[in-house]
Structures are given as C-alpha cells and as structure tokens.
C-alpha cells in the first residue's frame, strides 16, 4: 500500500510540474505586453519600462518561472495587474462562491441521481424505468448554459421565485446565499445527475444478477431488502468513479454557469482576466483548477485502492 501511495504521489507531483510549465509557456506566447495594456494607449515608454521592472517582466524566463512556482508553494500567487490586490486574496474571495456552488451541484445531482437510478433498476423494463432512461438521455443532451437560461425564464422571469442572477454575498445570510446559488446549481447538476442515474441503474442491474444476491433472495430476503442491504453498496463503486471523473466537467461547467448568472466566482474571474490580459490571474486560476482535478483524481485512485486490494499490486 505504501509503495502504491508513493508511486501515485510521484505521478501527482510530476503532473502538476508539467502542467505548470505548459500554463506558463502558453501565457508567455500571448501577444501584448501586460504593462502596456495596464497603462493604456498613450503611456510614455519610460513609464511602461518602469512598470515592467516593477512587475518583474524584464527578468529572464527561467527566473520568472521559478519565482512563480516558488511563490505559489508559499501561497503567494503574485499581484493582479488590474485589481492591484494579491491574487491569493482575489481567488479566496471568489472560491467563496465557486466552491459552495460546485458542492451544492454535487449534492443535488447525487441526491437526485441515486434514488432515481435505484428506482429505475428495481423497475427494470417497466414504464418508470423507461421514463427515467428517456429523461436522463435528454438531460445529457441539454447544454448547461441553455438549461440555465430556461431556468431563469421560468423561475425568475415568469414565476419570480428567484433572482435572475447575481450573488448577495454570504453576509446576507446563509439562506439568501443558498437561494442565489439554487438555480445555478440546478443548471450544473442536470448533466451530472443524468449520467450518475444511468450509471447507478446499470451498475445495480449488473450486481443484481450476481450469485450472492440469488443466495440472499433464496434465504428469504425480500427483493427490496436484497437491493438495499446487499446490492446497493457494491453497485456504488462505479458511481463513485464517475463522480470523481466528473469533477473536471463540473469545474468547466461552473465557469459557464457563473457567467450566465453573473456570479462573482472563479469562472467570471478567469473570463475578466483573459479579456483584461491580467495574465498572472489567468495563470493562477488555471493552475488552481488543474490542481483541483489532479488532486481529486489522486483521491479517487486512493479510495479505489482501499476498496479493491488488487489495484495496490498493479502499481
């Protein structure tokens, strides 16, 4: 187990190192000088040069890369060119929206998908199963930003139950905050819920054909008890994998949905930063998103090894 953990850890660090190189290199070839952009069209060349020195833009490439990575390891992401505040402060403020949104969406999709999937499997081939399969097939085809617009049209404009966008801040209270995140989280959850419900259903159906379920039924257990106490837990393993894999999709989805609902999260931050050529913010946010995906996949791998001892030896 220790050997497996170590090999996964090395691969994690390597992935992050290569990812940081790629991100740094990509933003290096972006045309346009951030210092010139910040000072506007009529800036004096001397002023631009002075700002370049202040921002450290005139240092050699390798030195700037080392300074960037070294800073991040100590929690220093640099200073935003446009906001003139530490990037770490910007990110932590925006995380206060993005993180609850993502968790809310994961909660909603799991809470919807698992009962639906179990229900569909227990009614295999009957109308309820067919209806759930049909709805989830549709749910996979609906783009999240369009679903978000439809939710706004129905629940904000027509019914007036929710605001059509914006975020009051957590100072306005937990309820107000959660309410503002409800439509965005629903828009984000639809795709995940559809995929998870289908995986839950097929995984449970497969488990129900195993011998130990037949044994349990032969002992006199009712079908629902056999499903809940024996099949369900085993059928959850593939569902967990998919949940882990979906994290990167959810993060990308959050960027889209935050923009539709004008939520001040990381997704809006990265968009604004790209249009304003605030490269240091772009670098930091992209690195953070990649870090999140890589770490979640690492944790999923570990969870797997805990559940399935055969995997530990394969490494």
């Amino acid at each position: 187990m220790l050997c497996y953990l170590l090999s996964r850890l090395i691969s994690l660090v390597l992935s992050l190192a290569v990812a940081s190189l790629v991100i740094f290199a990509m933003l290096e070839i972006i045309p346009g000088d951030p210092a010139a952009v910040m000072l506007g069209l009529n800036a004096e060349p001397e002023a631009v040069a002075a700002l370049r020195t202040e921002l450290g833009l005139d240092l050699p490439l390798a030195q700037r890369y080392a300074a960037w990575v070294g800073g991040m390891l100590q929690g220093d992401f640099g200073t935003s060119y446009t906001y003139r505040v530490p990037v770490a402060d910007l990110i932590s403020a925006r995380l206060g929206v993005s993180l609850p949104l993502t968790l809310y969406a994961i909660f909603l999709s799991t809470a919807l998908a698992i009962p639906l999937g179990v229900w569909a499997a227990s009614r295999h081939g009957r109308p309820a199963d067919l209806a759930i399969m049909g709805v989830t097939q549709l749910g996979i085809a609906v783009p999240n930003f369009w679903f978000a617009m439809i939710l706004v049209l129905i629940f904000a404009i027509r019914l007036g139950w929710f605001a059509s966008g914006g975020f009051p801040g957590w100072d306005a209270g937990l309820f107000a905050g959660l309410k503002a995140l409800t439509l965005p989280a629903l828009a984000l959850a639809l795709l995940q819920a559809s995929i998870l419900a289908r995986v839950m259903r097929s995984s449970l159906l497969e488990t129900l054909h195993r011998d130990y379920i037949r044994t349990a039924r032969a002992k006199g257990l009712s079908r629902s008890r056999a499903i809940l106490h024996h099949a369900f837990r085993n059928a959850l393993i593939p569902v967990m994998t998919i949940l882990g894999m979906q994290v990167s999709v959810l993060i990308a989805g959050a960027i889209v949905v935050e923009n539709v609902f004008f939520l001040p999260g990381l997704g809006r931050l990265i968009f604004q930063a790209v249009t304003q050529r605030d490269l240091i913010v772009v670098e930091a946010v992209v690195m953070l998103l990649v870090f999140a995906v890589v770490v979640v996949n690492f944790l999923v791998d570990l969870a797997y090894a805990v559940v399935d001892p055969r995997l530990r030896r394969r490494a």
């Binding site: 992935s15 990812a19 990509m26 790209v274 998103l289 990649v290």
Partner: peptide, 22 residues
Amino acid sequence: MRGNDLVFAFPPLVMAILIAAV
C-alpha cells in the same frame, strides 16, 4: 499515457479559453 492524463487534467473549456486568449 501520462501525457494523456495531463490533457485530461485541463477542463476542456479552460483549454479553449487559453487557446482563444493566445
């Protein structure tokens, strides 16, 4: 295969934003 994993670590939209920015 490790290179593949790396591309997977970039959420596709983030990749597109980067490419569009560059």
